[in-house]
Nucleic acid binder design. Structure first.
Length: 303
DNA sequence: ACTTTGACCTGTGCGC
DNA sequence: TGCGCACAGGTCAAAG
């Protein structure tokens, strides 16, 4: 489910309640998540103060006063919510989206200097999420090799050209490769390609000139990626199916989606008149407009 | 070295 | 109404 804008929305929702809070009792479900909970997780959390709530790519990071950092990935269906401590009558529980206790897998009692005693609950029906624990200042294996943050200065056409050069696979797969650029998922890959007018099937390497310089379309793609992610963050993410922010609220960027989930609907590009198509690439749906995307922007000046 | 395909799970929505 | 199937925002490991 959650891509960078949704994870950022979760981060922003957690931070005011969690940063500065001291963690009390930690409860971990017996099933674990995608992987078993790391050994020592509860011990690292209990008694520690959460220093900040940070994000890298689609990962949430909780650096603790104990010198450890907890990393959390939401998978497809992971969600955090706050509840009143110890039962159904806490005030924040009222905002929770229909709690389904069988899918609650982790809960932290927390004590915040301003907000008092609360419980932070992680639920994840499909259990594709996972948690890691590492010493602050070292790294997690999940963070190794990640590409640049797409909204940072480290992401530009030059660095993208370096990673796309010679790549024969489709540009859609290139955008989803977290080593190329970190945080883009299926929705925003489709949206960015549409905004840049690039067919998802175009080989990534076709956006790089023989001299390694980025083609104009690649410059456009960088702008499109930054724009769509920034707009989605401003809108609180996309609640396509079941994404919920930590306060239980829905994002509303799905209204701004131009291709994702719109198979058969008219293209929203001004004056286009095409219809959105869906194809499957690498086992995942790609939505695009055959009329205004590609098929081959780089060869426009070719033979 | 690279790219594609399962596998991991549960829930939902659709066609029959 | 009920059943079976396709599909879902993720990543990793194995197979090509």
């Amino acid at each position: 489910m959650p891509e960078l804008p949704e994870v950022e929305t979760v981060r922003a929702g957690l931070a005011p309640m969690l940063a500065g809070a001291r963690i009390g009792l930690v409860r971990l479900g017996p099933l674990g998540l995608r992987f078993p909970f790391p050994r020592g997780l509860a011990g690292a959390l209990e008694g520690a103060v959460v220093e900040t709530v940070a994000r890298r790519a689609k990962y949430l990071l909780f650096p603790l006063s104990s010198g450890m950092t907890v990393l959390s990935h939401l998978g497809m269906t992971g969600a955090y919510r706050f509840a009143g401590r110890g039962g159904l009558d806490g005030p924040t529980r009222l905002h929770a989206p229909d709690p389904a206790p069988v899918h609650d897998h982790m809960a932290w009692d927390i004590d915040h200097p301003k907000h008092g005693a609360l419980e932070l609950v992680y639920s994840d029906p499909r259990r594709f999420g996972f948690v890691d624990l590492f010493a602050t200042g070292t790294s997690s294996r999940f963070l190794e090799g990640l590409g640049p943050e797409p909204l940072s200065n480290g992401f530009d056409a030059k660095t993208l050209a370096l990673r796309f050069k010679g790549r024969k696979g489709p540009v859609k797969a290139g955008l989803l490769d977290q080593r190329v650029v970190a945080g883009i998922g299926n929705i925003y890959a489709c949206e960015a390609l549409h905004r840049a007018g690039i067919a998802p099937t175009l080989p990534a390497g076709a956006l790089v000139g023989a001299d390694g310089a980025p083609a104009p379309a690649l410059e456009a793609l960088v702008v499109a990626v930054r724009d769509v992610l920034a707009e989605a963050i401003a809108a609180g993410g996309s609640t396509f199916r079941d994404f919920r922010a930590a306060d239980g609220g829905k994002g509303h960027f799905q209204e701004g989606l131009r291709v994702y989930g719109r198979e058969g609907a008219p293209c929203r590009a001004p004056g286009c008149g095409g219809r959105i198509a869906r194809i499957v690439q690498a086992g995942r749906s790609s939505f695009f407009c055959p009329a205004c995307q590609g098929p081959n922007p780089v060869d426009a000046s070719g033979p």
